[in-house]
Computed example of a mutant assay.
Amino acid sequence: MSYTGPDFDPPQPRRSPLRRPLTVAVAALVPGALLGWGVYAAVGGPDDAGGTDRAGSGVRTSPAPSTGGPASASDDTSTATGPSPSPTARKPSVSASPSAPAAASGPLKGKVVVIDPGHNPGNFQYATEINRKVNVGTHWKECDTTGTATNAGWPEAKFTLDVAHRLRTLLEEQGATVKLTQDDDRSYGPCVDERARIGNEAHADAAISIHADGSGAGNRGFHVILPGAVHDGPADTRAIVAPSTDLGRRIAGNFVRSTGTAPSNYIGGGTGLVTRTDLGGLNLSTVPKVFIECGNMRDSTDAALLTSGDWRQKAARGMSEGIVGFLRG
Rank of each mutant, 00 (worst) to 15 (best):
P13R: 09
R14M: 09
R14S: 15
P17L: 07
P17F: 08
P17W: 11
L22Q: 14
T23N: 13
T23Y: 09
A25T: 15
V26K: 03
L29M: 07
L29R: 08
L29Y: 06
P31V: 12
L34S: 12
L34V: 12
L35N: 03
A41D: 13
A41N: 10
V43L: 01
G44H: 04
P46C: 06
P46Y: 04
D47N: 14
D48H: 06
D48Y: 14
A49H: 08
G50Q: 15
G51K: 02
G51Q: 03
R54D: 14
G56E: 09
G56F: 07
G56Y: 05
S57G: 10
S57K: 00
R60E: 07
R60P: 12
T61I: 13
S62W: 00
A64V: 08
S66E: 11
A73C: 08
S74H: 11
D75A: 13
D76G: 04
D76L: 06
T77W: 00
T79G: 13
T81L: 06
T81Y: 14
S84E: 07
S84G: 15
S84P: 07
S86G: 12
P87Q: 02
R90L: 15
K91S: 13
S93H: 01
A96C: 07
S97P: 05
S97H: 02
A102K: 09
A102L: 07
A103Y: 13
A103K: 02
A104T: 08
P107W: 00
K109C: 06
K111N: 04
K111S: 05
K111A: 09
I115V: 15
D116I: 08
